[in-house]
Amino acid sequence: MPWISACSTDDIDAEDLIRWDHGAQTFAIYHSPDGQFYATAGRCTHEDVHLCDGLVMGHLIECPKHNGQFDYRTGEAKRAPVCVNLRTFPVKVEAGQVYVEVP
């Protein structure tokens, strides 16, 4: 699976996320408080709402519509109403660029 350059490390504040679209797919890319980068599917598994307007708290992303929470490092659903885990994608950082391994 190809590694695609998604954004610069400077594009995302610490403890925040951005939306990244590639082809027909949409992703959420996170910058954790400890300086790591992560990527998940862009839309909440509960309803069809993009996570990019949500709130990052530590290693949790909270959906902007119903306040469901996921651990964006593992995709694990952490708080109702989300019950289904979020898909995650491998990420690497090279020369200030964030790359996502896109399926």
Partner: peptide
Amino acid sequence: WRWSHARHHS
């Protein structure tokens, strides 16, 4: 009611 309220917002 946690679920009914989620629907109320959707």
